[in-house]
């Protein structure tokens, strides 16, 4: 497993305490899991997705990630509607291990951008990991 200083944690994203990230792109946003989360899970073998059109509140479970011997729920960082899922992950879940930022999980239309304020900056997220 990686040491904390070996983790790739890009600036400009917002992170959750459950190790998801969100990136605002116009009136949409993409959501994925952090390098820390993919490293902890190990080889990801399956990504369970919601359906396009599903709506979730901030912090609600929208899917799961599975490794061989563990299951981890994924929680939506912002209230919103799912407008796209990353189809590539169905056949190649290992992409999340390869680059967890390039390979987002869902694209959403956020309902309330002010919720961003409750999410962590990269420095705050690092503090969390350093515990």
């Amino acid at each position: 497993m990686k040491e904390i200083n070996e983790l790739n944690l890009p600036d400009g994203l917002r992170y959750t305490r459950d190790h998801e990230w969100v990136k605002i792109m116009g009136d949409a946003a993409i959501v994925g899991i952090s390098d820390y989360a993919q490293d902890q899970l190990g080889d990801i073998v399956y990504v369970e997705m919601p359906e396009v059109g599903d709506e979730f509140k901030q912090g609600e479970e929208f899917g799961t990630l599975e490794s061989v011997k563990a299951v981890s729920e994924t929680y939506l960082p912002l209230t919103g509607e799912i407008i796209e899922i990353n189809e590539a992950l169905a056949d190649a879940p290992e992409l999340v291990n390869k680059d967890p930022y390039e390979n987002w999980i869902v694209r959403i239309r956020p309902a309330d951008l002010s919720e961003l304020d409750s999410l962590l900056t990269v420095d705050e997220y690092l503090d969390l990991l350093n515990g």
């Binding site: 073998v45 399956y46 599975e66 061989v68 011997k69 563990a70 299951v71």
Partner: peptide, 9 residues
């Protein structure tokens, strides 16, 4: 596909 099963989930 053990993640379906009781010892994990």
């Amino acid at each position: 596909l053990s993640t379906r099963e009781q010892h994990i989930r």
